[in-house]
Structures are given as structure tokens and as C-alpha cells.
Nucleic acid binder design. Structure first.
Lengths: 119, 119
DNA sequence: TTACAACATGGAGTTTACTCCATGTCAAGC
DNA sequence: GCTTGACATGGAGTAAACTCCATGTTGTAA
């Protein structure tokens, strides 16, 4: 399947402006038709979903660009890409652990409020 | 114990500029000495630690300001503050769950890379 | 064939959360 | 008494990640 920029943006749940911004930042660079209109493929869909995953887990755009750059250089950059993911996975793990601790402390505070309000 | 702004900032691991920025945003408003210098107390330490917790869990400064505002109005605002925390705790929970899912998907991708590189 | 929606570009503007800078005051050590 | 370091203020600047706008081109339905 192929998609116009508008269709693709709607499908991915982002704005056209954001899509073009990502292109300017070299995260995702679609092919063009003869009329210069962008054309996205199913392959772009899974790539975009992965970009969103990296973003949602806190990877800055500059670093995603680096990953994207390596990806476009082909299979010789595989181990470097894997290293990036392993390191990112580690910091994500740290982050989750910290958030869990914060959640526990929030629970304590909420419990405290509850007790105060019961009286 | 009492602390000057410099001591307090160092203790909390933030910069003096950030500390004053938080004051401008009404998150934490210390008393002043006769010479107009800020003076922080142990009470401010635990309050600041809580501010950091809210920040680290993704609460925007505007909302922390609202909580701070309620807090300064005394015990009559307790249930409202609790409601804020309960709601924040809920979204934090959602966030953690989403991050865990992302982590799982990252693991899959890393596994895939590993297999490719083994050959 | 003409209206209008969708697409394109370049550049300016926005929001959040700081961070830096110029300038001024003031207490303490040499 | 003078320098120096810590503190004060107001305002400008920065980085990240969009978001908006003006202007122009293209594709399609009536």
C-alpha cells in the first residue's frame, strides 16, 4: 500500500507539520511522485511506529536521527544500532524503576491524606 | 536548621537560577532575612523533594503551582490536593504500563538483532 | 473550466523549563 | 579600608519539539 502525506499523518496520529518536521530532521524521508508529492509505504508505517516508540521512551530527536542515519547505511551498521538500543533499553529500565519508586511514595502520601480526611 | 539560597540549592542538587525560577513560578517561596536574603528551612527541604517527585513523574510546573497554591491555603484544601494526587498517580500508572510495553518491544528488537549478528 | 481541497516550501512563532548576564548590595576576612 | 564572594533583581537568551502562516502548485469533482 501507498499513502499520501495527509493519509499517512492521519494514520499515524500526527500532524502534517510534525511529519514534515521529522523529515527536515531526517527521521523519515519518503519518496516523491512525479508531481513532487510525498509518497509513504507500509514500510514507512512500521518505521514510524518505531520512531514513536523511541520518542515515547524519551530518546531525543537528534539520537533518533543518528539511528535513522545508520539504518539507511544498511546492514553493516547493525551492531552499532543494536548497541544504541541496548543502551537505550538500559536507561529505560532505570527510568521505569525510578517511576515505580515515585509511585510508591505517591501512594504513601495519598494514604496519609485519606487518614487525615477520615477523621 | 536554616539554609541560605546557595546552601539550599547545593543540598537539593539544583542551580540557584532554577531555584529562583521556581520561586517566580510560585512553587516554593522562602522567608527573607532583614537583609532581604532568602532563608530556607528543613520544611522547605521536604517540600522541595516532593516538588522534584512531581516533576520527575511528568507533572508540569503550572500544575505543581496549583498544588502549591492549595497547600498554602491550609488544611481546607486537603481533599482537593488529594484528588490531584490520585489523578496524577493514575496517569503515572498508565505511563509505567506503557513504558513496560515499550521495553518488551525493544527487547524483541534487540533479540532480533542478536540473532542476525550471530550468523 | 473553474472552484476548492490537498499538497508543497520557507520561515516565523510558540511553549516549557530553564540558563545566562549585567548590574547592584552587603557582610567578612586580610 | 578594601577586596572578594555570596546574595539580590530584571530581563534577555537557549534548546527541544513542535505549530502556524503566507504563498504557490496540483488534482479532482461539479
Amino acid at each position: 500500500m501507498e499513502y499520501t502525506s495527509g493519509q499517512f499523518a492521519r494514520l499515524m496520529g500526527i500532524s502534517l507539520d510534525t511529519l514534515r518536521y521529522y523529515e527536515k530532521e531526517k527521521l523519515i524521508i519518503p519518496n516523491r511522485k512525479e508531481n513532487n508529492h510525498r509518497i509513504y509505504t507500509d514500510n514507512d508505517i512500521s518505521w514510524m511506529q518505531f520512531i514513536k516508540r523511541l520518542k515515547d521512551t524519551g530518546m531525543p530527536i537528534k539520537e533518533i536521527r543518528k539511528y535513522s542515519q545508520l539504518r539507511s547505511e544498511g546492514s553493516t551498521t547493525m551492531s552499532e544500532r543494536m548497541n544504541m538500543l541496548v543502551s537505550h533499553r538500559y536507561s529505560l529500565d532505570q527510568k521505569i524503576k525510578q517511576l515505580e519508586e515515585h509511585r510508591g511514595k505517591l501512594d504513601e502520601k495519598i494514604e496519609y491524606y485519606k487518614k487525615q480526611l477520615e477523621q
